[in-house]
């Protein structure tokens, strides 16, 4: 590899993203934040929990809180299906699950391929989007998981 190519790779790193679908849109999350993907299993509701918390699951003896991603993203509710998955993620030093319609694949993206999106409006959910990218003739919306919840909300999840 030439010096110029090596410099180019360093300036423009390739990142891997796990893609999932929600309400007919494709989203991506950084693969480094994904621990595993589970089939949908019964989620035990927690009395008094915030509305965006669906409940908890038992993951090999550990309690994991599952977040209602549709509700968090301001999308309409839907029934679960065979494709429904719980993606176990680790962020803000916490392990949580996010419920998604389906999980598709892992894609490789160069940093330079990611476009920023217009930051219009005052809705907090707009901050969840880190950028967008065109992959396989469709638009992939990249999610910044750490901004999915405020510091207070992450702390609140710790109490479960």
């Amino acid at each position: 590899m030439s010096t110029y190519e090596a410099k180019g790779v360093a300036d423009d790193p390739v990142l891997q993203w796990v893609t999932f679908r929600l309400d007919n849109e494709s989203y991506g999350i950084n693969v480094m934040q994904v621990q595993e993907v589970l089939r949908y299993s019964e989620i035990a509701p927690v009395p008094g929990a915030p509305t965006y918390v669906l409940g908890i699951i038992n993951l090999r003896g550990n309690v994991v809180t599952v977040i209602d991603t549709r509700l968090r993203f301001g999308l309409s509710q839907t029934e679960t299906s065979d494709q429904t998955r719980i993606v176990i993620i680790e962020t803000e030093n916490q392990v949580v699950g996010i419920l998604v319609d389906s999980v598709a694949e892992v894609v490789y993206l160069r940093q330079s391929e990611i476009e920023t999106t217009p930051n219009v409006g005052n809705d907090e959910t707009a901050k969840f989007i880190q950028g967008v990218c065109h992959k396989n003739d469709e638009l992939l919306i990249l999610v910044d998981l750490e901004k999915m919840m405020s510091d207070e909300e992450w702390a609140e999840l710790n109490d479960f």
């Binding site: 301001g74 999308l75 217009p118 219009v120 409006g121 707009a126 989007i129 967008v132 638009l139």
Partner: peptide, 15 residues
Amino acid sequence: NQLIGRPAWFMGAYS
């Protein structure tokens, strides 16, 4: 494509 959290006048992204 619908982008979450945008104002009502923002219809989405066209590729």
